[in-house]
Design a protein around this nucleic acid. Structure first.
Lengths: 351, 351
DNA sequence: TTGTAGGCGTTATCAC
DNA sequence: GTGATAACGCCTACAA
């Protein structure tokens, strides 16, 4: 009663006031507490009263303000997902996968692109801290960046690394890049290839480390000595692929096969080859990663290392939620890996 | 003082309590109001006091809780963007563009996929209403769906339509699909084509209406009578493209040119052609929309209707923010269009 | 210049 | 069963 400020009177004349529990309570002739109990299904509310409340809710078209609920519960039911660029189909697919897990559990997924820049990553982490995100999925550009690591640490937010790792300090979810790359190289070796180049990016990430280790192991196992000049490891950009493939193919002793590892690299590599009049697999064999529709419809279609990015997103979401639920007991650090598969097509020839 | 509950004492022993203005105020030996003034740059705070406050903030590592700020300001600084699927590069690109406008202005962009399903769209709109989003960018599946329209209306949230329209009722931003399609068809006519097919989706959207109108106008202008059986207008899915292109090319009188309008359709159409051993432009000429890297590296590269999706996202964001700022005066309904361009490549031949 | 107090919209803890 | 009331974390009159 004391609460009936004049704003109620203004409502009709002034700009539409936002609806609150109070409006519903008044309309139903009950207290706000009762309204709250009804919408939260707290037992012990009279059936007729509940009916009246629900009628008032429908009548006014009220929906509880989640922000207010959250502030009381000191939670946000929001998860941040940070990666380089949503235009990369890999991240779009992971986002879609994660969304499918978070949505039904009442969490809002907020994906944001850092353009792979450290300051943006730090800003985004701080932003999620200000918004009191309940969790973070991180696919950062460089696992060793101290600024980013300290931003993560001071945020105090539960997080998992996706396609990245933080030593033994954090849970991570990734594809089996070692296995995938190893299988690709073994296939090339079987097809008679000895000079195998690799174009990729992601220095300072689990992904590059595993790919490199796989290549080295495979070469060593075949008693082939790797040529360091065949390694082009500085970027995932199409432009980089375009340049490097031409430099590689312009060498006196060009590679006979190229691993093109990174979704955006492939268009660059292919148009680089086209630009210098080289064909695949005639002039050079090609294996790409991840598999995409583009890879499958090029002429000829391209052999690819495939893994399920959608599943990766789902797993990251599920693992993170589990970790959030257990918050209190210190979270166990776990490592999850999903399998890869070599999709044989026509871009590799026997030599 | 009365406020110093025992929780402060517990802090050391119990689970880490969240930081608040109170902690900072105590640490700096000032009141919470003063802390608030400092972080909000309200003039009239003693320089030494401000310094002490800032020191305390840094010391504790506190960041104001945006949720709490928002609940006071009755805003959320959050914008929802609803479309069918983030894996569609068009939406990913728009999202990126919009992010670039919202971020610097302190707004959080939340993109979510509806899978083009009406109930999902309604759920998402209600979700954004519960979260008190300040604005909505809508790329819904069907402009005429009454459930969705009423969800929009009852939400009371400022919104703009992106690549969609709501008659004269709402501001919309889109590419000039009429112009783009018209130009493509004129080009085909000039190259001697008379039987022009169109594969696309999006019934009930501005985009399809404009494309269809352009095709009809162009045919009429050339005194060609359109064959309704050459119109395949039921889906944007790759699978649909795969099927329909084969049905079209299997006809007694197949088309001599196909407009393949929809990013995901292209891989389907191309592999459909490959599957039946048809080539382009030998057996049929091809024009696609939007332009993608895939279109440019296929053999041969594909003539494409291009428009700037990134710009579309930026514009939608800018227009929406302007509309939000002016909230109070009823928002003017405006229509924005960005130009398209026909990128000539090698998938169209003269006949 | 700084402190106090009330309120933003909700829920949980008391009483009744 | 239901109704007051005190938080949640912050900002802003208003008072001092």
């Amino acid at each position: 009663m004391a609460n009936e400020k004049k704003s109620t009177g203004e409502k009709a004349i002034a700009r539409k006031k936002r609806l609150t529990v109070h409006d519903v309570a008044r309309q139903a002739g009950v207290s706000t507490g009762t309204v709250s109990r009804v919408i939260n299904n707290v037992p012990g509310v009279g059936e007729d009263v509940a009916r009246r409340v629900r009628a008032a809710i429908d009548d006014l078209g009220w929906l509880p303000n989640i922000a207010a609920q959250n502030i009381r519960a000191s939670t946000s039911r929001m998860i941040g997902f940070i990666f380089s660029d949503i235009r990369n189909p890999l991240y779009a697919t992971m986002t879609k996968g994660a969304e499918g897990v978070f949505g039904p559990r009442g969490y809002l997924l907020v994906s944001s692109s850092s353009d792979g820049r450290m300051e943006r990553e730090v800003n985004l982490i701080d932003l999620f801290r200000r918004r009191r995100a309940d969790g973070l999925i991180l696919t950062i550009a460089d696992e060793d960046c101290p600024e980013v690591r300290s931003a993560i640490a001071r945020s105090g937010i539960s997080f998992v690394m996706l396609e990245r790792a933080l030593g033994d300090e954090a849970t991570s979810i990734s594809a089996d890049h070692y296995g995938g790359t190893r299988q690709a190289v073994e296939h090339l070796k079987q097809m008679g290839h000895r000079r195998i180049a690799m174009i990729t990016g992601g220095r300072g990430t689990l992904v590059m480390r595993e790919r490199l280790r796989a290549l080295e192991d495979a070469m060593a196992a075949g008693k082939l000595d790797p040529d360091p000049d065949l390694l082009r490891l500085d970027s995932f950009d199409a432009e980089y692929g375009y340049q490097q493939v031409q430099m590689l193919m312009g060498k006196k002793e060009p590679p006979t096969a190229i691993l093109c590892l990174g979704v955006r690299l492939l268009p660059g590599v292919v148009s680089g080859l086209q630009n210098m009049g080289k064909t695949f697999p005639g002039d050079v064999s090609l294996i790409c990663s991840n598999d995409t529709e583009t890879a499958s419809i090029l002429t000829p279609p391209i052999t690819a290392i495939r893994y399920d990015a959608h599943m990766l997103g789902r797993m990251a979401a599920a693992v993170l939620l589990e970790q959030i639920d257990q918050k209190g007991g210190k979270p166990e650090v776990k490592k999850f890996e999903i399998p890869t598969e070599l999709v044989l097509r026509e871009s590799v020839r026997r030599i």
